[in-house]
Simulated assay, not measured.
Amino acid sequence: MSSRENEALAQAAVSALTRQLELAPKPGLPDPRDLGARATRQDHCLLRWSAKALTPGLAAMAAAARRTGTATPELRTELGAIGRSTEHSVRLAGGGHRGALWVLGLLVAAAALEPRATGPDVAATAKKIAAHTDRRAPRRPSRGSSVSAKYGAAGARGEARAGFPHVRRALTTLATARSAGAAESEAWLDALLTVMSTLQDTELLYTAGPHGLRHVQAGARGVLEAGGTATEAGREALSAFDADLQARGWSPRGSGSLLAGALFVDALPVVVSSPAQAA
């Protein structure tokens, strides 16, 4: 795989993240409405800007995967080192995206290992990478790992080691919504709500506890059970759910990261134009 192909994978991943950020209305999550009256205006602007800082690191992860050729412990360790360096670059650019970097980094590496793979096959390859331990990772516990241990939640590592089940569920929802004639934005929102309805989001557990997590899961299920965002009843339920999370200050950020991962996988395989075509 050439450097141009590695760059194309990285750009596709960042494009998926940007599309997730631009989607609205996302309950409890930053979206373009923040450019108006909502309180997280600066957060959303910075998130859109700092997303670009992921590109070099994701391209390096794709290159590492191609060079290694298989899901080895050495690849997992190298991806971890690249990820920590990329986190530093993103902080300098404004911060955010730590969860998205974890999700997209593993999926980009998986796509580089299996260039023809799509959908669940990409998630299965990512699972093989995540099964190994990052031997150079800092030994201090992260907030996410501490919350996972306290509540018995799978967390980001558990999600990856299970083969990203919520990415796969989101892909199924995308296909179902499109088959039913939903617009792309409606399909994406339904996929996001599908993730929210069952994900044990450690960020929510930290800020809102188990009761808050169950409240968010129930709210997401309520929108889907009302018919999803392609229906009037579903849109009304979504509006009420969004207002509720905004009032409570609860942000299911893990669901946003996994939607970005699903949108990336949904766009595979990435087609790389030749220099002549690009011109």
Rank of each mutant, 00 (worst) to 15 (best):
S3C: 11
R4H: 15
E7M: 07
A8L: 08
A10D: 03
Q11R: 14
A13V: 08
S15M: 09
S15A: 13
A16T: 07
T18V: 15
L21V: 00
A24V: 13
A24S: 15
K26P: 06
G28N: 01
D31N: 02
D34I: 11
L35R: 15
A37W: 07
Q42P: 01
L47K: 07
L47N: 06
L47H: 06
S50Y: 08
S50L: 04
K52L: 13
K52A: 14
L54V: 03
L58H: 05
L58N: 01
A59Y: 10
T77N: 12
T77F: 09
T77W: 10
E78K: 04
G80D: 01
H88F: 10
S89G: 10
V90I: 12
G95D: 01
H97A: 04
R98Y: 09
L101W: 05
L104D: 13
L104Q: 06
A109N: 02
A110R: 04
A111T: 15
L113Y: 04
E114Y: 08
R116S: 13
R116C: 11
G119C: 01
G119P: 02
D121V: 14
A124M: 12
T125R: 13
A126V: 12
A126G: 15
I129K: 10
T133S: 12
T133Q: 07
T133N: 05
D134Q: 00
R136W: 03
P141T: 11
P141W: 11
S142K: 02
R143E: 14
G144Q: 06
S145M: 08
V147G: 12
S148N: 10
A149S: 12
A153Y: 03
G155K: 00
G155Q: 01
G155S: 01
G158V: 02
A160K: 09
G163H: 03
F164P: 11
H166F: 12
V167Y: 11
R169T: 14
L171M: 03
T172H: 06
L174F: 09
T176W: 11
A177H: 03
R178M: 00
A180Q: 12
G181R: 00
A183M: 09
A183W: 11
E186I: 11
A187C: 00
W188A: 15
D190C: 00
A191Y: 01
T194V: 03
S197E: 05
S197D: 02
L199A: 03
E203N: 15
L205K: 07
Y206A: 15
T207G: 08
T207H: 15
T207I: 10
G209R: 07
R214G: 05
R214K: 14
V216Q: 02
A218Y: 10
A218W: 12
R221E: 08
A226L: 06
T229S: 05
T229D: 04
A230W: 01
E232I: 04
G234S: 03
R235T: 05
A237F: 10
L238D: 05
A240L: 15
D244V: 12
S255I: 06
G256Y: 07
V265M: 06
V271E: 07
V271N: 04
V272S: 12
P275H: 09
Q277R: 10
Q277Y: 07
A278V: 02
A278G: 00
A279S: 14
